[in-house]
Simulated assay, not measured.
Amino acid sequence: MSWRQDNTGITAGGDVGGDYQATDSFSVRYVHTDRSAVVTVYAYGVERRPGRYSVEMQTEMTVCRDVRRPGDTEEWSDSAYAAARGTFNSAEQAYRAAHDAIRRHKAREIRWDGRAPWEKGTK
């Protein structure tokens, strides 16, 4: 499986984490080199308990007709969530850690083959 970062680079801002999101998010998008599939990885600070923050990583996987417009050409999508390492004493520290997590993210970390569930038996 082969993924490459698209031309947008790291994008700042956005509310993707729902009620738990305590900071703005950062994201990076990858496109599959052989399939019409996109992965967008988001990182943002969340307040786990009062005064204690961590970074949540959200990975959105999308099969679409046009990788330049995954939102309005989506055929299937799913999301997975994971907590990044570390806890922080402020939202500002979590915000900086979220940016660092996205900056360090690499395409080789993607564990999805770019196929929707019904495509698993096809090549």
Rank of each mutant, 00 (worst) to 15 (best):
A12Y: 07
A12L: 08
A12T: 07
A12I: 00
A12K: 11
G13A: 01
G13W: 04
G14W: 12
G14M: 10
G14N: 10
G14R: 06
D15G: 11
D15A: 15
D15S: 12
V16G: 09
V16M: 12
G17P: 07
G18S: 04
G18F: 10
D19M: 13
D19Q: 13
Y20I: 06
Y20W: 08
Y20S: 09
Q21H: 12
Q21E: 12
A22C: 04
A22I: 05
T23N: 02
T23Y: 07
D24S: 14
S25A: 15
S25T: 08
S25H: 05
F26M: 11
F26Q: 07
F26K: 10
S27W: 09
S27E: 11
V28R: 11
V28F: 06
V28M: 01
V28P: 03
V28L: 04
R29W: 02
Y30A: 02
Y30R: 01
V31N: 06
V31S: 03
H32S: 07
H32R: 01
H32E: 00
T33N: 14
D34G: 11
D34A: 14
D34E: 14
R35L: 15
R35C: 04
R35S: 07
S36T: 09
S36G: 08
S36W: 07
S36H: 10
S36C: 04
A37L: 05
A37R: 00
A37T: 03
A37P: 03
A37M: 04
V38K: 03
V38L: 04
V39L: 02
V39G: 05
T40E: 09
T40P: 02
V41T: 08
V41A: 02
Y42K: 03
Y42P: 02
Y42Q: 03
A43W: 04
A43N: 03
V46Q: 13
V46N: 08
V46Y: 09
V46P: 08
E47T: 10
R49D: 05
R49V: 06
P50D: 12
P50E: 12
P50K: 10
G51Y: 00
G51K: 01
R52V: 15
R52P: 06
R52A: 15
Y53D: 02
Y53E: 02
Y53I: 08
S54R: 07
S54K: 03
S54I: 03
V55D: 03
V55S: 06
V55C: 06
V55Q: 03
E56D: 08
E56G: 02
E56H: 07
M57L: 15
M57S: 08
M57Y: 05
M57Q: 15
Q58S: 07
Q58H: 01
T59D: 01
T59N: 06
E60T: 15
E60Y: 09
M61S: 14
T62N: 03
T62L: 06
V63F: 08
V63H: 05
V63T: 10
V63G: 02
C64W: 06
C64E: 04
C64I: 10
R65N: 13
D66Q: 03
D66V: 05
D66I: 04
V67G: 01
V67E: 00
R68W: 09
R69H: 15
R69Q: 11
R69P: 00
R69A: 10
R69V: 10
P70R: 04
G71D: 15
D72K: 06
T73I: 09
T73L: 08
T73R: 00
E74G: 04
E74I: 11
